[in-house]
């Protein structure tokens, strides 16, 4: 079943098209990584899918219905969740309060408390529950944001460079977390630079270049492609 489909998706800033007639199709249960050189339009594409940007042209379908003009908060309610590139948590609230505010949208009373504890365990922040989010380390903030992003039980989780600024060990544990979430039924679309991480989590990757899909397939096949190598080193042939 196709969970998410983008058709001819375009976003122009002034005269420049950051995303240019992008076609993308994500199956339910998949983990898809979007890779590509800087400025390829990966983050913009993710923002369009999450609804924090609205498209200049084209359409997005989620679970069979068009969501191109659905507001970001309504997409969240329909089951699309995003983890931003810069950790986006509630800085002046405690770790526990961060999760409470996210989880109280679904749960009440003692069940809410249980879910908060479970999520704290899951993102390994139980010992930090009383700390203000702003004093957490970068990696801990990233994990807290994971906790926030999955609290709505999303069907589709969008990750914008989830391992940016993490140590190799943190990166690997993040990969395990993503795989675990995926096993429990969450479809994942991740923008990522770290090929080690991509190899760990993804079966299929899409290479973005100049705002559109340049190549798609298994990671090793795609990386072996001469044209893909060229765009990573700057002398890109136009997409044909």
């Amino acid at each position: 079943m196709t969970l998410l489909r983008a058709r001819q998706l375009t976003k122009r800033f002034g005269g420049h098209a950051a995303v240019d007639r992008l076609d993308l199709s994500i199956e339910a249960g998949e983990i898809r990584c979007l890779i590509g050189p800087n400025g390829a339009g990966k983050s913009t594409a993710l923002a369009l899918l999450a609804g924090s940007l609205s498209p200049s042209a084209g359409a997005i379908y989620f679970d069979g219905s068009e969501i191109s003009n659905v507001a970001a908060h309504d997409r969240a309610k329909r089951g699309i969740s995003i983890k931003f590139q810069l950790p986006s948590v509630f800085p002046e609230l405690s770790v526990r309060q961060n999760l409470k505010i996210a989880l109280s949208r679904r749960y009440l009373g003692s069940e809410l408390d249980d879910r908060i504890d479970e999520t704290l365990d899951l993102v390994e922040l139980s010992d930090q529950r009383g700390k203000l989010a702003r004093v957490l380390s970068h990696g801990q903030k990233q994990w807290l944001e994971f906790g926030l992003a999955i609290s709505l039980k999303p069907r589709l989780l969008l990750l914008d460079e989830p391992t940016a600024g993490m140590t190799p060990e943190e990166t690997e544990r993040t990969g395990e977390l993503v795989l675990r979430l995926n096993r429990s039924g969450v479809t994942v679309v991740a923008v990522e630079h770290d090929m080690q991480f991509v190899r760990q989590i993804a079966r299929t990757v899409s290479v973005l270049h100049l705002g559109t899909v340049f190549s798609e397939g298994r990671l090793n096949d795609v990386l072996a492609n001469e044209d893909v190598k060229k765009i990573y080193f700057g002398e890109a042939p136009r997409h044909g």
Binding site: A50, F90, L148
Partner: peptide
């Protein structure tokens, strides 16, 4: 409080 602390994250949580 969610909106005060981070409008971006609040929106992504469906607020």
């Amino acid at each position: 409080v969610a909106v005060r602390e981070s409008p971006l994250r609040a929106e992504a949580l469906g607020y």
